[in-house]
């Protein structure tokens, strides 16, 4: 197919892509209004070596990575549930480690901002106290500066994300419309539905038409 043929095709059927994008965008917007909100609360705990040499820095990183990998332990989860009086599972808590900033991030997810905040605050406090105890027992605490940086977690609504949903809907609708246009074109070409398709398929001119009775 030449570019001009593509152009004619999209002029003829392009409205399908626009309509598909509009319909799917509207559906996505509608879905957004019924989607359950999800809030994220984030607490940050710094874990900085007291002495800035490579050995201590590496040791700190290893300890932090281990702490993040085992987060949340069953004991920590049970303790958090006891303190806040809410049932939550391991999916609602997450930890991450930033190698550059030497920060452990504790994230909590919940359907309302208050619960997420309490969950993150409690989990961070519990994590800090348990690890502090552990580092003390292992004689690391003198060498590591380990403290919660923000007592009030940062709150953010992460779902529904209206812009992402609408953009995804528009994209899916546009792609579906494009697929439909190409299928219609294939149908026209394969079943010789248009005079242009016939004239492309046969080298001889179309001389006329006969009606079947």
């Amino acid at each position: 197919m030449t570019w001009s043929e593509y152009g004619r095709l999209f002029l003829r059927h392009g409205w399908l892509m626009v309509a598909g994008a509009a319909v799917c965008g509207a559906l996505a917007l509608g879905l957004t209004t019924v989607q359950e909100p999800v809030f994220r609360a984030r607490a940050r705990i710094s874990m900085i070596p007291g002495v800035m040499d490579w050995r201590m820095r590496d040791l700190t990183k290893e300890l932090a990575r281990n702490a993040v990998a085992t987060f949340p332990s069953d004991e920590l989860l049970a303790a958090v549930q006891d303190q806040i009086g809410l049932q939550t599972d391991a999916e609602g808590l997450r930890a991450g480690w930033d190698d550059g900033e030497l920060i452990i991030t504790i994230e909590a997810f919940a359907g309302d901002a208050a619960t997420a905040g309490i969950l993150a605050r409690t989990a961070a406090r519990e994590f800090h106290s348990r690890r502090s105890l552990q580092f003390t027992e292992q004689d690391f605490i003198e060498f590591i500066e380990f403290e919660i940086r923000n007592r009030e977690p940062e709150l953010q609504q992460i779902a529904p994300n209206v812009m992402t949903n609408v953009l995804a809907g528009l994209f899916v609708g546009f792609a579906a419309g494009l697929a439909l246009v190409l299928m219609l074109h294939w149908r026209d070409e394969e079943w010789l539905l248009t005079r242009q398709a016939i004239e492309k398929s046969v080298p001889q001119p179309v001389l006329g038409r006969l009606r079947s009775n």
Binding site: I198, Q204, L207, G208, L210, S212
Partner: peptide
């Protein structure tokens, strides 16, 4: 053989 032309047969 080269066909002289094409004829559309329509209902």
């Amino acid at each position: 053989i080269m066909a002289t032309g094409t004829v559309l047969v329509e209902s």
